[in-house]
Computed example of a mutant assay.
Amino acid sequence: MSQRAVTMRCVEIRSYRLKPGTRDTFDRLMSDISVPMLRHWQTDVVCHGASAHDEVFYYLVRAYSSVEDRQRRQDEFYGGTEWRDGPRQAILDLIEDRACYPLGSTPYIGRHSHGRPHHRQAQEQGK
């Protein structure tokens, strides 16, 4: 069994309470536009998807090298025209409420090389 290096990362969990009936649209916006945009900006999107237990909740988990790196990257991303002139308003229009939980310096093993399937992919695969 191979061993993986454990590094300390600032992990952030965001939860969204969506407006009723908007989860599929929100998921498409996140999967097709927002998450690829975050990754283009070198943000480590660990996983994202809809809650398996509630129709109106969605999550996004990201990892950064430090708390300062998190702040810098988010300032650049959310302050940029690509986000502001892109999917920002369409995404915000679907959110009832949101919460952010930065965990600070946390042991982080990382994703498997193939990544974790997000909720829509898991549904399509019958999982």
Rank of each mutant, 00 (worst) to 15 (best):
E82I: 00
Q89Y: 07
L92I: 01
Y64K: 13
E82K: 00
Y64H: 15
A90T: 09
E76G: 02
D97G: 01
R84M: 08
E68K: 07
W83D: 03
A90W: 05
G80T: 02
L92Y: 07
Q71R: 11
D75H: 09
G86F: 05
L94E: 01
R72K: 12
G80Q: 02
P87R: 00
W83I: 07
I91F: 06
L94N: 04
S65A: 13
R73E: 13
C100A: 13
A99Q: 12
Y78C: 01
Q74W: 06
R72W: 07
D75C: 04
P87K: 00
T81H: 05
R98C: 09
Q89H: 07
V67C: 11
D69P: 00
R98H: 10
D93G: 04
Y101L: 14
Q74P: 00
S66C: 04
Q71H: 10
Q74S: 08
R70M: 13
Y78S: 05
Q89E: 14
Q89L: 12
I91R: 10
C100S: 15
P87H: 01
D97W: 10
R72V: 11
D85N: 06
R98A: 13
V67I: 15
A63M: 07
Q71N: 12
R98W: 15
R88S: 13
G79E: 00
R72L: 11
D75V: 04
E82W: 02
R70C: 09
G79V: 05
E76P: 00
E68Q: 15
V67L: 15
D85T: 03
A99C: 11
P87M: 00
R84A: 03
D69A: 15
I95G: 12
E96P: 00
R88Y: 10
G86K: 11
R84T: 06
Q89K: 10
F77T: 11
Y78F: 15
Y101E: 05
E82D: 08
L94I: 10
V67S: 10
L92E: 08
I91N: 03
A99L: 09
D97S: 09
T81A: 14
S66M: 03
D85Q: 04
Y101W: 14
C100E: 12
D69T: 06
